[in-house]
Write a protein that binds this DNA or RNA. Structure first.
Lengths: 266, 266
DNA sequence: AGGGATCGGATCAAATTCGTTCATTTCCGG
DNA sequence: CCGGAAATGAACGAATTTGATCCGATCCCT
């Protein structure tokens, strides 16, 4: 109704701006001061002040040049590093995959850096219900009141911060959602999606089984690769989101097996 | 009161105007004072007065320049705020509590900044099995191969990054460990441990019920405080780890109820 | 380890908003 | 018709917010 552009020119309240900043930091894990200032249309001084206030509340950590999520969640630099590396493809894939989600959906999101990136894109949706076994995905979505995040139980697998084991699989039994967004280490037409770890593969299977449609997120480095354990066969995959550097022949082969292709332009 | 028989250009009643203001705020989420004044054809002073009244009723939040819906921009600072407070005490308490853990133990760790600190101290132990509903605790223990971390399932509660809800409680059913290390927002001899949130309280109860012995970690700022919902009665508490600034009388009272006291020297 | 560049903190100034006081208007009962 | 109470609007000083600028601190690259 009252749009803020034509007539209103309503000044953004300080609390609103801080909330926005918080969301941006939560969504991206780490944001530079300049980006924040540009995003909230304020001067860097003001953002600095906001960051100081938010830090004093323990809601984020301030660093030279920006701010990050609080706690030790990303002191483990490896995860963040991996996430920021090769971000162009991942980002494009995540964007495209997020467009497959509609407000009000119930979805499953598997572990992985690509799916984590994807999860961050979900913050603009509302009334979502997200089931995941990835702590990173859960963390990316924490703090958005319009998104309900449910974690499966299970044993923590340290290196990827995902929950595995029988408890994880059991908690997925009886669950039914519209779409599952999962990733993996390799994808071929013959053997479908695969990962090198047995436990992870078992949970991935359970994740896929809980959804009516399976969406696979895989950048070009994974297409044509075969890891050890098959998680989902090509026939079970309904959508594949990848980037335009993926080998054409494999994509065609997958398409022949009924996989709908979504190729992100880098 | 309701004498609207004569339809002739009656003045807008105050209650009517406030209702209109409320509608506008609800419809737009946030409205500037100027807009409101223009919309209800009143002076800004009057709107200011209305906003003050509406705020005192909790129907909206007032900000510099306007008003917003209540709750949207609240970030539940209460929990996090205390995180930066008294880190020296937390550290000492965490150290002392960690000495209650032995290699090979199976323990439960609840959410909270103190228990998170405690969890970090556990890395020197081996062959531990840790069950928790706190993402922060899980994260603190991730990457130590000698420690098996199991997360309960459940709905993610953003502000404290803990899992709550029936799924969390269900996953604890049938579990039996030696000790539960939990925290809270208040501890008195009469009402035991308490937190301000109902869901969190329910899970805390389940956590405590899964252990043979309950260990409470609470710094002096929480001793003598009573939050809203009781989680564990004083009789159920076997150990209390606190710091030496805790009020002596409350400690004695707790000791009289069978709580073994561990007081950390700052 | 050093130099250049960038970032953070502090002070100051401008603009806007808030709270209070006071005058005016309106409504109601006697 | 009149007096009082409540509500509204106007005005002015105080407080808050925001942005610009300067200078010290920090970081990065060589």
């Amino acid at each position: 109704m009252v749009d803020t552009d034509s007539d209103g020119r309503r000044p953004v309240f300080a609390a609103e701006r801080r909330q926005r900043i918080l969301e941006l930091v939560r969504a991206n894990g780490a944001v530079s001061l300049r980006e924040l200032a540009h995003a909230v249309q304020s001067s860097e001084v003001t953002v600095r002040r906001d960051l100081r206030a938010l830090e004093s509340e323990g809601l984020l950590n301030r660093h030279h040049g920006g701010a990050t999520l609080p706690g030790d969640l990303n002191r483990e630099a490896s995860y963040v590093q991996k996430a920021t590396l090769s971000s162009a493809e991942k980002s494009a894939i995540a964007d495209l995959a997020a467009s497959l989600v509609e407000d009000g959906d119930a979805i499953v999101v598997g572990p992985g850096t690509t799916t984590q990136e994807f999860a961050r894109r979900l913050s603009r949706h509302t009334e979502l219900a997200v089931v995941t076994n990835s702590l990173l995905v859960a963390q990316a979505l924490a703090g958005f009141p319009r998104i309900e995040v449910m974690l499966t139980g299970g044993t923590l697998r340290g290196p990827i911060l995902a929950l595995v084991g029988s408890a994880a699989e059991r908690s997925l039994a009886g669950l039914r959602v519209r779409r599952a967004f999962i990733s993996g280490n390799g994808l071929t037409a013959d053997r479908g999606l695969s990962t090198p770890n047995m436990q992870v593969a078992c949970v991935d299977q359970a994740l896929a089984a809980a959804a009516e449609e399976v969406v696979v997120l895989a950048d070009h480095t994974k297409i044509g690769i075969d890891a050890m354990v098959q998680t989902v066969s090509a026939e079970q995959i309904d959508h594949l989101v990848t980037d335009d550097a993926a080998p054409r022949d494999v994509l065609d082969e997958l398409g022949g097996k009924g996989v709908r292709l979504h190729v992100a332009q880098i």
